[in-house]
């Protein structure tokens, strides 16, 4: 049952994404319809995740299928909220939804039937707080990526015409800086809560395991990009490239680690 609801949610997302791409090409603004599809998709997806959580007895963070499903969910939850509240970012739907399509396709490569195992060290409230901040971080960067996509596509004549109705690059750059600043706060909280969890779980708050190290490097990259933009008053295009590089780094760290380690943190599943 939960799987059918999940597929229905994905169909809603695909409809929202396709409509946003078509409207970008046709220069239409079916924003209300897109928002309706997004909200419906998020509601269905939330239901599917809740049902699976109830059935499996653990949250959506054990198997790769679950990690990707909850990753798509949190990106779209935050994106839908911002889409509703900040009109300037609505045009970004045509830019960010292809990223989500790729994630959906990737998720389908993993068997949803895989059970997974919840290690003892996951039995702590700090895990949920840590993961919550991580998801809030990447979702916020995701919105900045959409804004950066507009700034960069305006370098082309086609993009300039299509996005002519939006605020100027400087204003969009300021908006993306704000989202990155908020993302940095979430990411800092993610590192602090992760250290608290690690101290409880393994007796050390920091041990330079692959995920810790690369998450910290990503944090440094975020700090570096914000500082660079503030110090040198960089051009919107430079700021946009920095945002995209942070997102690529964060995405590889968050979703790439399972390819090099069977557990999200080194040593989690040792017997």
């Amino acid at each position: 049952m939960e799987l059918q609801i999940l597929w229905a949610a994905l169909i809603m997302y695909v409809l929202a994404g396709s409509l946003s791409i078509i409207s970008f090409v046709m220069q239409r603004k079916p924003e209300r319809t897109i928002l309706a599809f997004l909200v419906l998709g998020v509601v269905l997806h939330t239901t599917a995740i809740a049902l699976r959580w109830e059935r499996m007895g653990h949250g959506p963070y054990i198997t790769m299928f679950e990690a990707l499903s909850s990753g798509i969910w949190n990106l779209l939850l935050v994106y839908t909220l911002v889409y509703w509240r900040i009109p300037a970012i609505r045009a970004t739907a045509a830019i960010v939804t292809p990223i989500l399509f790729l994630m959906m396709g990737w998720m389908m490569l993993f068997p949803p039937s895989e059970v997974g195992h919840k290690p003892v060290v996951y039995h702590t409230i700090w895990l949920y707080i840590h993961i919550g901040f991580a998801k809030a971080f990447i979702s916020t960067v995701f919105i900045a990526v959409g804004i950066s996509g507009i700034i960069l596509s305006r370098r082309t004549e086609y993009g300039e015409i299509r996005f002519a109705h939006l605020p100027n690059d400087s204003r969009l750059d300021d908006l993306s800086f704000r989202f990155m600043a908020v993302a940095m706060i979430f990411q800092t909280l993610m590192l602090i809560t992760g250290a608290i969890w690690a101290q409880d779980a393994w007796g050390r708050y920091w041990d330079w395991d692959p995920l810790e190290t690369w998450a910290f490097i990503t944090w440094l990259l975020v700090i570096f990009s914000l500082h660079l933009r503030h110090t040198y008053k960089t051009a919107p295009r430079t700021g946009a490239l920095l945002v995209i590089s942070v997102f690529i780094m964060a995405f590889v760290v968050f979703f790439g680690v399972p390819f090099v380690s069977t557990d999200f943190h080194q040593g989690v599943g040792r017997s």
Partner: peptide, 15 residues
């Protein structure tokens, strides 16, 4: 400074 660069365009457009 407001988050919404176009504060006059907060309504959802449909065309």
């Amino acid at each position: 400074r407001p988050w919404n660069p176009n504060s006059g365009e907060s309504k959802l457009g449909e065309s």
